[in-house]
């Protein structure tokens, strides 16, 4: 107990002193997860919108497949990407394994299904509500989709925030494809796992505090945005 209190005090000191190593890990985490979120939104939102209003054979199968991908265990995704990116793998020539880019790819892969599914649900409901109205006003399909995306801008931002929250908390796949190399691919979650197993509690605790604050901050921001949008626009 005493040891825990001491570690906590040290952790607080690390945070307040702006420890360089800590700052490096946090900023790498933020950068990588932000990149993954943007990439996953850029790919997942159009795909989700297309699944919502497209009418083509296999649509239902695709929807089920994306829903299933949401439940994919992180380490399994990590292993799959490892095989793809490792030197002997089909994408091995790119030399991405154990780089921050590999982490971005892993996080993108893990959160994209969530973004696809949430976007699809959102756009499907909006389509139900607006389809005839927009068509009556003269909007063709592409215009109508653009209108729906704009109309759903707040809900879609919240989808993005949910994706970010999940990306920054990812550990299994990130550990496997990033390799947890000090100063290169060590992000908050993987450092916490490593330092805890080494018994270096202050750093692990300091990172945990920051991670909790970040995730809670993101959720709080999402809730505030939702409330504000509902109050402002209905």
């Amino acid at each position: 107990m005493q040891e825990f209190a001491a570690s906590l005090a040290l952790a607080a000191h690390l945070v307040s002193a702006g420890d360089a190593r800590l700052a490096g890990i946090v900023s790498l985490s933020l950068g990588v997860s932000l990149g993954a979120t943007l990439l996953a939104c850029a790919l997942g939102m159009p795909l989700g919108a297309w699944l919502a209003i497209g009418r083509f054979p296999g649509r239902h199968t695709l929807i089920v497949a994306f829903n299933a991908l949401m439940g994919l265990p992180s380490v399994v995704a990590g292993l799959f990407l490892y095989l793809l990116l490792s030197r002997a793998g089909p994408l091995g020539g790119l030399g991405l394994l154990f780089t921050p880019t590999a982490i971005v790819i892993a996080q993108t892969f893990l959160i994209a299904p969530l973004i696809v599914a949430l976007t699809r649900q959102l756009i499907e409901d909006a389509w139900q509500e607006y389809r005839e109205q927009l068509r009556s006003l003269g909007a063709r399909r592409t215009r109508a989709v653009a209108t729906l995306l704009w109309d759903g801008r707040f809900s879609l931002s919240i989808v993005g925030l949910a994706g970010f929250g999940r990306a920054i908390a990812e550990v299994g796949a990130v550990m496997i494809v990033g390799g947890n190399i000090d100063g290169v691919t060590r992000v908050m979650t993987t450092t916490i796992a490593l330092e805890t197993s080494k018994g270096d509690l202050p750093l692990a605790l300091a990172l945990s505090l920051i991670l909790i604050a970040l995730v809670m901050g993101v959720n709080l921001f999402a809730a505030l945005l939702r409330a504000w949008a509902a109050r402002r626009w209905g």
Binding site: Q133, L134, L137, F154, W233
Partner: peptide, 20 residues
Amino acid sequence: RPAMLRATVLANVEYGLKIR
């Protein structure tokens, strides 16, 4: 049940004109 966009009243009325 008319559907209104998440925009101002004016923007809603302008929408059809914009399309044209």
